[in-house]
Write a protein that binds this DNA or RNA. Structure first.
Lengths: 156, 156
DNA sequence: ATCTGAGTTCAGTATGGACTAAACTGTCTG
DNA sequence: CAGACAGTTTAGTCCATACTGAACTCAGAT
């Protein structure tokens, strides 16, 4: 039927996701794999051990990966009655968070350019290049922020 | 007068710029330093040798840094009559380019999510998480793109 | 032809960080 | 209590890659 089993296809896809986040967000590969896997796994809530075997990583790596993913709010840990340990799932607002974090980077850069202008305040011409940057990124920050408003959700 | 000489302040600022681009865009530190330096240096057009001494890097590093900066269109090489070698300056549209490149990353991710949906086309429920991501990033891509229109120039 | 300076390439070093195995902690079960 | 399991920490390995020095190429000037 398929040239590749769906499992293999999914793992290959997870690999692409991991590579993307490694390249664009500086995430360690394994962390990206966890995120990618949690996007497509069935069931959608899995234990660290399950994830580890799925993506072929060690318990230790899972521990650190999950720590950063939880701290970033990308992944949530849920417990179940009468089961020990936690199950992990992607947060409902992962992607808003990812995007918002990128937006923050924009803001950080605006701060840098602002400080640059400060240093060059007595040489306006020399500050032109920095000023251009500052204007563009401040504008973008302001225009993009409203596109990322929290959805007011009260879903179960 | 100053606690730090302006030169020192600028170098410290360049360092921040370099760190920012290293962290957010995966640029090597030296490459970021070159870019930062070219944002504030006086005169605004400098030779590779001048830049190298300014930021304390080797000729070899400058060579590679300049290659990637030029290839990305972030820096332009200009020649002058009766002078040998080239002078480097930031491109007029550096920041548009930087921003546009980030936007492309968004598009790349939309492609990834699209392919993920493809793989899961026969399990709609399982594709929900990927679909959410796809919708958000496609939307953002479309909404952000118009904020980055090329200024209408007709240079070659 | 030779010299000089700009720029590239190459080989080697080293620094950082991702990853793992193994030891350890703590908690729940029987 | 013993035993098992979830998870963390630590120590160490390994790999990628940034960076440099030095050799090299090429162009123009004299």
């Amino acid at each position: 039927m398929d040239e590749q089993s769906k499992e293999e296809q999914l793992l290959a896809w997870v690999e692409r996701v991991a590579a993307f986040f490694a390249r664009n967000n500086g995430l360690p590969l394994i962390t990206g794999r966890v995120l990618g896997w949690l996007m497509v796994c069935d069931p959608p809530e899995q234990t660290a051990a399950q994830i580890a075997t799925a993506i072929g990583a060690s318990k230790a790596s899972l521990s650190t990966a999950v720590r950063v993913l939880e701290a970033s709010g990308f992944v949530r840990a849920v417990t179940r009655p009468a089961e020990r340990g936690v199950h992990l799932r992607v947060a409902d607002d992962v992607w808003e968070r990812v995007a918002r974090r990128k937006l923050e980077a924009l803001g950080d850069f605006s701060e840098i350019t602002a400080d640059g202008l400060e240093i060059l305040h007595d040489e306006p011409a020399r500050g032109d290049r920095v000023r251009d940057a500052h204007r563009l990124f401040s504008r973008l920050e302001q225009q993009i922020a409203p596109l990322l408003q929290h959805r007011d959700d009260d879903s179960p």
